[in-house]
């Protein structure tokens, strides 16, 4: 049980907090906020997983997420704003 494994577990627990906000959030915007929060936690988790295995090609997935991860939340909030038009 090294330090980095502990970091991975802590990040997973923090992601659990974001999931809790997504589930209880009274309005749709709270849920999108939670989605945003979880996506950054997933990027951190991928970076540390790659750091543990020492394989740098795993970081490509994190790069993809940081590039297109915002599209989902932007699309949903635009959908809500324009009343059903994407």
């Amino acid at each position: 049980m090294s330090f980095l494994n502990g970091v991975l577990i802590v990040v997973a627990v923090l992601g659990l907090g974001g999931v809790a906000r997504v589930i209880i959030g009274p309005t749709i915007w709270d849920r999108i906020l939670g989605l945003n929060l979880i996506s950054s936690k997933i990027i951190v988790a991928i970076v540390f997983f790659a750091l543990i295995l020492e394989k740098s090609f795993l970081l490509d997935i994190a790069i993809i997420y940081s590039l297109i991860g915002f599209i989902g939340s932007v699309l949903i909030s635009r959908f809500v704003e324009k009343k059903g038009q994407v």
Binding site: T27, W29, I32, L33, N36, S40, I43, V47, S56, L59, D60, A62, I63, S66, L67, G69, F70, S73, V74, S77, R78, V80, E81
Partner: peptide, 24 residues
């Protein structure tokens, strides 16, 4: 590669936050 991730994330996070706040 981590530096690249950092730069991309700093560029795209404000976009999504702004989109959510503006929508509400």
């Amino acid at each position: 590669k981590i530096a690249l991730i950092l730069v991309f994330e700093l560029l795209t996070t404000p976009l999504s936050t702004h989109a959510i706040a503006h929508s509400a």
